[in-house]
């Protein structure tokens, strides 16, 4: 690289790099330090060794919270991927003008504030006074405990999450589908391939980079899920939907136990890093970048 190019690169990348260092890397390093301390943000931190990690791995509520997070990750990644792809295929099959309308409709909930819509949905889901159960009762269905049953509450989160965020996966798939060269489809049509064969041999293989991108992003986002349990269920009933991020928030900003919350955050960080590395390695076997 020429000297002047190096200088240009430094000028353009420097501010962004500095921002990352200040607001991401330093806080992450600080979080590692805090995990070994007792710190309530008012008093000075005190070194406590592995005490926070011992509490994390011996506390009776911890396994449940990890399991909840894992359940939500599996559920949401699968549902958003399948539903997003289905919507994208559906919209791509429409006339060009109509596609704009549906693109807007499906993406619209993504731009709404989660807190405000989640509170409205909480009333909609109310077991005895909510509107969904009212309509179900009109067709003879018993009231569903949407927010009060450890099983149903996952369905509630899934419905809300799909309504609110499916537009994101949809948009990625919609763009990904648009990037597949049309010549492949024309050749398949000439060869008399049916829609299923076209999807299996052209669309899916050529969409794998997008699928991988969407799955990886969904995995990271749903591992850090916070809004849905916080606003819809409060982590309940009991601890039924308490996730790691919600637990981190509660220990940090309710208990003011920043050392312990940092230890939980580090455990999440390690889990995410390990799973992401596994996914990156596995992806080499199924993601097709050659077209």
């Amino acid at each position: 690289m020429k000297q002047s190019n190096k200088k240009d690169a430094l000028i353009f990348l420097g501010p962004t790099f500095l921002t990352y260092v200040l607001f991401l890397y330093i806080p992450i390093l600080f979080c590692f330090y805090l995990a070994f301390t007792k710190y309530d943000i008012i008093s000075a931190s005190e070194f406590v060794g592995l005490k926070n990690f011992t509490r994390l791995f011996t506390y009776s509520r911890t396994p449940k919270i990890y399991a909840n997070t894992l359940k939500l990750v599996v559920m949401l990644v699968t549902m958003h991927t399948v539903f997003g792809l289905f919507l994208a295929l559906l919209v791509r099959s429409l006339a060009h003008g109509t596609q704009h309308v549906f693109r807007f409709l499906y993406y619209f909930p993504c731009i709404l504030t989660t807190a405000s819509v989640a509170i409205a949905w909480r009333y909609i889901f109310n077991k005895d006074l909510g509107i969904i159960n009212y309509f179900l009762s009109q067709v003879g269905v018993d009231a569903i405990p949407w927010l009060n049953d450890p099983f149903w509450v996952y369905g509630t989160i899934a419905i809300f999450s799909l309504w609110k965020f499916a537009g994101n996966a949809f948009l990625y798939f919609y763009i990904g589908l648009g990037n597949i060269p049309i010549t492949y489809y024309e050749a398949a049509r000439i060869d008399g391939a049916n829609p299923f064969t076209v999807f299996k041999h052209i669309t899916f293989p050529l969409l794998t980079p997008t699928i991988f991108f969407v799955v990886l992003n969904l995995f990271i986002a749903s591992s850090q899920i916070f809004d849905e349990p916080f606003f819809l269920t409060g982590g309940g009933p009991g601890d039924a939907t308490r996730t790691l991020n919600l637990y981190i928030y509660e220990t940090a900003y309710r208990e003011f136990n920043f050392g312990y919350s940092s230890a939980i955050a580090i455990s999440l960080f390690v889990l995410l890093a390990v799973f992401t590395l596994i996914q990156l390695n596995v992806s080499k076997k199924w993601v097709n970048y050659d077209y």
């Binding site: 909480r122 009333y123 109310n126 077991k127 927010l147």
Partner: peptide, 13 residues
């Protein structure tokens, strides 16, 4: 009484 849901405000009811 209805089942109280987490965070419910009674005023709208």
């Amino acid at each position: 009484a209805p089942v109280p849901a987490p965070g419910d405000q009674f005023i709208p009811f």
